[in-house]
C-alpha cells in the first residue's frame, strides 16, 4: 500500500500498489478535491491541472 497526503486538506490517501499510474486523476476522499498522481514511486500528489478557456480554431 502506498500513501501520501492531500495537498489541500492534508488527509491521508492510501492506494493499493500497482493500482495507479502517473498522470492519473483521483478524488481526495476527505475534501473531494481533484488530485493528479505526479509520481508513483514515491507516491506524490498535486492539485489536478486547472481548466482554462481559450479562443481557437
Amino acid at each position: 500500500m502506498a500513501n501520501a497526503n492531500c495537498p489541500e486538506c492534508e488527509g491521508v490517501i492510501e492506494l493499493a500498489d500497482g493500482s495507479f499510474v502517473a498522470g492519473e486523476i483521483i478524488d481526495c476522499p476527505d475534501c473531494g478535491v481533484e488530485l493528479e498522481i505526479t509520481s508513483v514511486q514515491p507516491l506524490t500528489l498535486e492539485l489536478a491541472p486547472e481548466e482554462e478557456e481559450d479562443w481557437g480554431e
Partner: peptide
C-alpha cells in the same frame, strides 16, 4: 490524458486543460 500529463511534467512544466470556444 494521463499519458499527456506525465509527458508534460517530465519536461518540467505544469500542465493545464483547456476548452476552446471554436470548433475543429
Amino acid at each position: 490524458t494521463a499519458a499527456f500529463l506525465g509527458a508534460i511534467r517530465s519536461e518540467g512544466a505544469r500542465p493545464a486543460f483547456v476548452f476552446k470556444t471554436g470548433t475543429s
